[in-house]
């Protein structure tokens, strides 16, 4: 499969002159288009270190830019702008402003691990995508993505009870992401299910509060996990130079 790479020459950097005379020579017509000099001066030298400090980003330094990740990527096939190799390059070079151009799509990685399987250098690009998406949120460049919302709801239920209940995850997520629970496709799906088993449906979706799965004697595990998470949060806060006002578990701009 061909890799459709990004063009670094953007339309806004092309200068076209209708009439142009240089050194007394009229170069209007074919010779009138120029590329504006592009100089990057605002490197963020800490970019790679900060992303490497977040879960999943640890191995970014190993990347040798072969492009296997982008070539294998599921989301790249849907959207050629989704380009893990390129983002890893930008991060390693410290091109923060370039990275920010794609800030709204990086979270769309579907964690299929095609990149991780293809990568010859064990970079775990899937993890780098997660770390980068997380970094963008923590630095306030993007609002918390629906994906992070989902992770947070899910993880907090696991940390609290040891188990999850898919129905209440669904309702919790729709609420947190501000979506109405009643979506037309969801209704269609419910109708399909009601065909045979109305009771089971309600039961499974957690709207009947008959039964809430949980692991017994989970208290000590919960306390241990919460203590550990708090330590990690503190480490991330220091690594990213975040002040106390930043909520590490989801904030909405």
């Amino acid at each position: 499969m061909a890799i459709h790479e990004k063009h670094l020459i953007r339309p806004e950097n092309l200068a076209t002159h209708d009439n142009l005379v240089i050194d007394g020579v009229d170069v209007s017509g074919d010779w009138s288009t120029f590329i504006r000099t592009r100089a990057v001066s605002d490197y963020n030298e800490d970019l790679q270190v900060e992303i490497a400090a977040l879960p999943g980003g640890e191995y970014i330094h190993r990347c040798w830019q072969c492009g296997s990740c982008t070539n294998a990527c599921t989301v790249n096939e849907l959207n050629p702008d989704f380009n893990p190799r390129y983002w890893i390059y930008l991060i390693r070079m410290g091109y923060e402003s370039e990275l920010l151009r794609d800030k709204d799509i990086i979270w769309q990685c579907v964690s299929c691990n095609k990149c991780t399987s293809a990568c010859p250098r064990d970079v775990v690009p899937e993890g780098v995508m997660k770390a980068t998406a997380h970094w963008l949120e923590l630095k306030g460049h993007t609002a918390t993505s629906p994906s992070t919302d989902f992770d947070e709801i899910f993880a907090s239920q696991v940390f609290h009870k040891g188990k999850i209940e898919d129905g209440s995850i669904l309702t919790g997520f729709m609420k947190r992401s501000g979506q109405p629970l009643i979506q037309d496709w969801l209704i269609e799906m419910i109708k399909g299910m009601l065909r045979d088993l109305p009771i089971r449906f309600l039961f499974n979706m957690g709207w009947a509060t008959l039964f809430h799965p949980k692991t017994k004697n989970w208290g000590k595990a919960r306390a241990a996990i919460e203590e550990y998470v708090a330590e990690r949060d503190e480490a991330h806060r220091i690594a990213l130079k975040l002040d106390k006002s930043v909520d590490l578990h989801g904030h909405h701009n």
Binding site: P55, G56, S111, G127, K130, H134, S147, T148, F150, D151, E152, F154, A155, V158, F159, G162, K163, I164, T215, K216, N217, W218, A221, I225, Y228, V229, R232
Partner: peptide, 18 residues
């Protein structure tokens, strides 16, 4: 006996070690 969630696809995004 008394099993717990494996972490699914979500917990690793909070912290892989958990």
């Amino acid at each position: 006996k008394n099993w717990n969630c494996c972490g699914a696809m979500e917990v690793k995004n909070i912290d892989p070690e958990i």
